[in-house]
Every structure is written in C-alpha cells, then in structure tokens.
Computed example of a mutant assay.
Amino acid sequence: MFDKFFPDEYVASTYVIPFEKLYEKGYRGVIFDIDNTLVPHGAPADERAKKLFVKLREIGFDSCLISNNQEPRVRMFNEEIGTHYIFNAHKPSRKNYRKAMEIMGTDCSNTLFVGDQLFTDVYGAKRTGMYNILVKPIHPKEEIQIVLKRYLEKIVLYFYKKKQKRLKNS
C-alpha cells in the first residue's frame, strides 16, 4: 500500500552518500532538493555543500537543484554552488524531474535524486522512474505544512523499515 512512497535507499545524510560508487555504477546526473537535504531550511550554501558540488564535478557528475521554493530562495542558495536549477518545481509532478534530466543530458537510467521528503521528493522521483535516495532532514525547524507531512512520513517509514528488515532476514 505504501510501496509507492518507499525510497530506493534511506541514509542519514546527503554527505554520507558514496557518490564515487554511484558514478562507477553508471550514474551521471544528480538532482537535489535544497532545504533540509543540503542545508537547513532557508539557509545559504555552507562549506559542506560547496565542497560537495566541487567533488561531484571532479567525479564527473552533472547536477541540478529542483525546489518547490520561489526563484529568490533557489538563486540565493545556488550563488555559491553554480549548478543548474529549477524553482517552483511543483514536486511531485514529473515535469521538472524530466526537465532537469534534459538540462543535464541524462535520463532515468543514469540519474539519481536526493531529497528529504517522501511525498514530494521521493514520490516524484519514483513516478518519473529514477533511482532515489531519501535523507534524514538536517534540521527540525520546518514550515507548518512540512511538519504535518512528517507525521504521515513516520507511518510510511515504519512500514518501509519493517519491509527492509523482512528482506534482510529472508
């Protein structure tokens, strides 16, 4: 029932993802959410985020930010990053996941998505057919509509973890 919201992978942080190994597996594009995926909600790019994007370029990845935020927020974050971006993305709509791949010259088979929300980020990536990684939110302070969704996410993640445990034990 909840499977359509289950991430392909669930990790503690964007900053522990083994991007080198993913590149070796054939991935060439990475699409990122911004808030609570790369930095706390509303924050500018910090040193960790800047270093990540330098590292991704060195590995050979192209990248794109897709955010439901308006352009000033996304542009402000991207000033220090210097990658492609799409604002007001209407996630989980597939349109801008596809547009991001078009911009990077990639497709579903060699693009992955990283985000912190199940019902927008992961669900949109799954609907588009791309590999997706859910990360734990960086900071607990969030807008009220996100706080409400987090309660529902806890239910879905309970069943996700239960399924993962069952798969591991079989």
Rank of each mutant, 00 (worst) to 15 (best):
R98N: 13
R98V: 10
Y27W: 10
K99D: 11
N69Q: 13
R28L: 10
K25N: 08
S63Q: 11
C108G: 10
N78T: 11
N36P: 05
P92F: 04
R98H: 11
V114F: 04
L65V: 05
Y85C: 02
L38I: 11
S93I: 01
N88R: 13
M104Q: 06
K55I: 00
Y97F: 15
Q70Y: 11
F19N: 01
L52W: 01
P72N: 08
R48Q: 15
L112D: 02
I31P: 01
L38N: 07
N96E: 13
I66G: 02
F53M: 08
G60F: 03
E20R: 14
E71H: 10
S93M: 12
N68Y: 06
R73E: 08
T83W: 01
M101L: 09
Y85A: 03
G42M: 12
L22K: 15
L56D: 04
D62I: 00
S63H: 00
Y23T: 03
A49Q: 05
F87A: 15
V54Q: 09
I103R: 07
M104G: 05
K50D: 00
T106A: 03
I66N: 01
L65F: 15
P44F: 09
A100T: 07
V30T: 04
N110M: 05
I66W: 05
H90T: 05
N68H: 03
V54H: 04
E80V: 01
